[in-house]
Nucleic acid binder design. Sequence first.
DNA 1: CTAGGATCCTGTCAGC
DNA 2: TGCTGACAGGATCCTA
Length: 313
Amino acid sequence: MPELPEVETIRRGLENFILGQKILEVQIFSDKSFLGPSELIIGQKITKLHRRGKALLVDLSNQTSLMIHLRMTGQLIFRRFGSENGAELTKMIKSGHFHSKLAGQNTFAGGHPTNSFFTELPNSQTRVQIKLETGFLFFNDQRKFGFIKVLPTAEIAQDTFIKKLAKEPWQLDPTDFYHTLQRHPSANIKALLLDQSIIAGIGNIYADEALFDAAIDPRSRAAALSQDQSKQLLLSACKVMDASIDSGGSTMATYLRADGSKGDYLEKFAQVFRRENLACQRCGDTIIKIRVAGRGTHLCPNCQKLITEPKDD
DNA sequence: CTAGGATCCTGTCAGC
DNA sequence: TGCTGACAGGATCCTA
């Protein structure tokens, strides 16, 4: 799914369009995509958008909140009334005035990149449609793993997902991070980076990218990392996510080129993710793709050092 | 307690 | 062309 930088980009982008608006109608096309009483949010005003890890939180005027998790294939797309057919984006693309972001005057899109960003909505993957005062917010999700959940604002912290979340990478103390890794005697480092109760917000892209940046092989034994190595890894995670947020998230910036062809952040910034069989930009060796922690994993076998036992220094 | 695998669901793509 | 299996930017549940 969209990982932390994508969700943060969505939060910032959506804020410009929906903050302060009243929810007028909710249409649910897939029951498993919307949890809780939808009638509770009708007529309520959107007062705040925030984020914890990969979860987007939308506070409403009646002490109720929406927790939105996009999981693997979720998308949030806002279209002002009259723009539901996506014609504006198509026009921008054709006239060459399409810049780097999927946000125009009348539309904003973020999440798993598909054609739904610029085609007619709702479509077969639309699970929830929320009518606001100036337009529609569409929740699309191919695989139905994601969801929108209604809950009292005061109970967000007790939510089973939120409750287990570790600190955000920037808030995590390097020494604490090191000690957490030490507590997992046989796990590999990639599995722990993906574990939201160890560090919040990292997914498959940024796990691979952070490990490349820190020059650590994803198969390394987490508990074998030295203090310095775990600190470097934490810094690398912050660095790659900061860079992504700055560029508008991997699914946003340059996803579409002016000619309508697809391109994206990955092409521009990723050093290893989806670059198997290509040359490492650091050493020229060939990037490989293997399976680690049950996930497709990309690495440079030359640059990234396999750490199995702590160095005694 | 940890660690690994199966599972939810739909779509796409490589290989026959 | 049509089928089949593998795989997918996530998290949870089940098992040993």
